[in-house]
Design a protein around this nucleic acid. Structure first.
Lengths: 220, 220
DNA sequence: AAGTCAATTAATATCGATTTTTTACATGAC
DNA sequence: GTCATGTAAAAAATCGATATTAATTGACTT
């Protein structure tokens, strides 16, 4: 959404704190898909006022993580296989579009940012920090398209996908894949400005993950 | 955004009323792009409370019509040629995707809805009602993709485009085009399930409008 | 003239209380 | 038994007031 992050650790406002907390709780599944989100309940849970909670929920609507029904409050966005398929399909279309544009406009500066984010991702060992670095790597790939709306859509879809990854977790996490190698392929192709190879590798990366997650999500 | 419309004329809530009013004012340019949106000012303008105004503005964030900066309030989303180009390009990609899926899944029911919305659009004479029918026609084209997120994106982008159309208005509205004929071509191809022709006609329709609007938007 | 800082003003964010609306439940008619 | 109707409880929406924060002004220094 359009809330501009000042990127300082400092807690700026109660609304922002509530936004971040609720967002995290929905992405992790701590607040289950489809669940009614009652103001009073969240107010006590987050130890804040009703106004910040309401506003945070309104803002989460932008991220498609919360639905709002007039006069009937909010609920966590429902999850379904169909919805997951939609996300995957939109991601493929939009990320391909963005990656093509990024590569077409390739610059030394972008190359360097890519090298850095790729390196940082490879250094991360624990899941927690890896996730951030992983998203950062993927977003850096797209960042050179210089298309804020496209980036916003991709970021949004990335997070929605993470949510399904978390919903699926619990099943064995073993896939017969070499994920780092997949990243390397995408990375190398992008650096070489080989748009064709980079896109194929990127979409294959997503589709493989998608196919795997679908097998884990049968109980949706 | 995710606010579910009950489609009854009845005014449901102050927030909804404010949302609709503000949305319209931004789309028409009555609230100029980039303008600071002060709560107090809007509160008196709409004759409602501060809470509904705040919430409406938060929700408008979803539509990318309003930006929010923490602790610094809201402003109408800025407009620029670059932004307009982005919208056009995203529309072309996403509407093509949606139309292809719609046609691929074509059913008699969809065909009939298409015939109806096309007919209704042709009957509309005054600009006011035509706009609604026109959007309805375009959205019906995409509706058979059965992809709520995709539809939401397209609807959002459609509205953002309308906004630029309004910003450009004032310049001569004469284009050397036969717009109804363009609609007819799209319509006929869709009914015939000729995906190729339909997409080409649809994208050409958008790109011609885009090129024309760009000439009118030089003062952005 | 340009820059800093403090005091003032303006605007946003937040709270607590009130009003309105919805939901859940019980009662009685057909 | 099912449907309708009324009522009590719960929740959402809204208001009015207050606390915080940002923007502005103008005096003072360099």
């Amino acid at each position: 959404m359009n809330m501009i992050d000042d990127s300082s650790g400092r807690e700026t406002s109660a609304t922002r704190a509530a936004y971040i907390a609720l967002r995290q709780m929905i992405l992790t599944g701590e607040l289950p898909a489809g669940q009614k989100l009652k103001i009073e309940q969240l107010r006590t849970l987050l130890d804040t006022g009703a106004s910040p909670v309401r506003e945070a929920l309104s803002l989460l609507t932008s991220d498609m993580l919360v639905e709002r029904i007039d006069q009937r409050g909010f609920r966590a966005a429902p999850a379904s296989i169909a919805n997951f398929d939609e996300i995957l399909s939109l991601r493929c279309t939009l990320e391909e579009m963005a990656l093509l544009q990024s590569i077409a406009k390739a610059t030394p500066d972008w190359e360097e940012r890519l090298v850095l984010s790729h390196h940082r991702m490879k250094r991360m060992t624990d899941t927690e920090t890896f996730e951030d670095a992983h998203k950062s790597f993927h977003m850096t790939l797209l960042s050179n398209a210089n298309s804020p709306m496209l980036e916003r859509y991709c970021s949004q879809l990335y997070d929605l996908n993470i949510r399904y990854r978390n919903l699926a977790a619990g099943g064995k996490n073993y896939q017969n894949r070499n994920i780092p190698a997949e990243h390397d392929t995408i990375f190398e192709a992008a650096i070489q400005r080989d748009a064709q190879t980079a896109c194929e590798a990127l979409l294959s990366h997503y589709r493989l993950t998608g196919a795997y997650l679908t097998t884990q999500l049968t109980d949706l």
